[in-house]
Simulated assay, not measured.
Amino acid sequence: MLISVFALLVQLASAASPIDTSTRPTDYLHCLNDADVTLVSGHRGGPEPGYPENAIETFAHTLSRGPFLLEVDVRQTADGVYVLMHDETLDRTTTGEGRLDATDWATLQRYRLVDNDGAETAFRTPSLAEALEWAEGRTLLQLDVKQGVDIADLTRFVVRSGARDRAAVIAYTVEDALAAAAADPHISVSVEITSAEQLDTLRSAGLDADRLMAWTGVSATPLPELWSMLDEQGVVVAFGSLWYIDNDVANSGDTSIYRRLADMGVDILSSDLHHIAFDAIESDQNARGAVALCTASLGNVGTDR
């Protein structure tokens, strides 16, 4: 009997601390916040040597160490299939060439993914549908909606897939955030918020704080006053240690900054050194225990309220 590629993906190693919920991601993250837990987000799924970005096999490798949120990139093929890929072109991350939006799904599946060191792997580009199905009972996905993808249509696809309990939509503008929110009354939305005025604009337009993730940017300098304001307003706080802080850690070996960021109010820390950041933060928290408790308390809440 032939076994489909996706069936094999489903059989990958189980998550060490699965996030399994039937409520929206922001509700789950508020539960973790109440337990003083900062959740690390694997940027582009957490690539490492041998594990390319935006690959389900990479997601399984990331989750084998503990609970993580996974940030992934969404684009469309020439025939409209939602797939996970960061770049507009195939050249850097696959064995193929050319533009993704000029390549159909069947052709894309003939190519293999390449890791960040340029090494070819046995893995293929997954569809968003496959990733959403695989994530069930394992983790929460942040969907970075790339240019050219209609965010309202993408949101409706997530809802039709029955996956709004494990996927949040990333918007780059207030207009896109509102379009995603209007497409479904329960979807969690991540959007840049760097001031009280931006938060007021979103709330005045009808986007409730309890389904917002505030992306506060990527910086070498912590922003504790902003994070405190957002926390007081009941908004999940996300920050990126990408590039600047991660590079400093890689050069110095001093990981204490990750714990300090958690102590200053970051709820989600997006990092390219995801396992290192997790170990540093977990030294003074119990994410595994909090995930188990939040899964037990929120697992049967449901999103149709």
Results as ranks from 00 to 15, higher is better:
Pro222Cys: 13
Arg112Cys: 02
Gly289Tyr: 01
Asp153Val: 12
Ala277Thr: 05
Leu84Thr: 11
Met264Thr: 04
Glu197Pro: 01
Ala35Lys: 14
Arg65Thr: 15
Gly137Pro: 07
Gly240Ala: 15
Ala15Thr: 05
Tyr51Leu: 10
Ile276Thr: 15
Cys294Asn: 00
Val37Ile: 11
Phe59Asn: 01
Ser297Trp: 05
Phe59Cys: 01
Val235Thr: 11
Leu12Ser: 13
Val266Met: 08
Gln198Glu: 14
Asp176Glu: 15
Glu197Val: 06
Ala183Met: 01
Ser283Pro: 01
Glu175Leu: 05
Asp91Val: 05
Ala168Glu: 09
Ala16Leu: 06
Arg99Trp: 14
Leu298Pro: 01
Arg124Thr: 14
Thr303Lys: 00
Lys146Gly: 05
Thr38His: 10
Val10Lys: 15
Ala238Gly: 12
Asp254Ser: 05
Arg305Tyr: 10
Val218Thr: 14
Ala179Phe: 03
Val159Arg: 11
Thr62Asp: 08
Arg203Met: 15
Lys146Glu: 03
Thr221Trp: 11
Ala131Trp: 04
Thr121Tyr: 06
Leu141Gly: 09
Ala106Val: 13
Gly50Trp: 08
Ser204Met: 10
Lys146Asn: 06
Glu192Arg: 11
Ala119Val: 15
Ile3Gln: 13
Cys31Thr: 04
Thr103Gly: 10
Ala167Lys: 07
Asp101Tyr: 06
Glu53Gln: 11
Arg211Ile: 04
Ala15Ile: 04
Leu293Phe: 08
Leu273Arg: 12
Val5Tyr: 15
Gly46Trp: 05
Ser195Ala: 09
Leu202Trp: 02
Val114Ser: 02
Leu199Pro: 06
Ala78Trp: 06
Gln285Val: 00
Gly42Asp: 09
Leu2Thr: 13
Ala292Asp: 13
Ala129Ile: 04
Ala220Met: 08
Arg112Ile: 00
Gly80Asn: 06
Gln109Val: 04
Ser14Phe: 05
Arg288Gln: 12
Phe59Met: 06
Thr221Lys: 13
Leu141Ala: 09
Thr194Trp: 02
Ser283Asp: 13
Val169Met: 04
Glu225Asp: 15
Ala135Val: 08
Arg99Glu: 13
Cys31Pro: 00
Glu282Gly: 05
Asp208Ala: 15
Arg75Asn: 10
Gln11Gly: 07
Ala13Leu: 07
Ser22Trp: 02
Arg92Ala: 11
Val191Cys: 00
Ile151Met: 02
Val114Ala: 02
Leu12Ile: 00
Arg112Gln: 08
Asp184Gly: 02
Ser297Ile: 04
Thr121Val: 04
Leu12Thr: 07
Thr58Arg: 01
Ala183Glu: 03
Glu192Leu: 04
Ala60Pro: 01
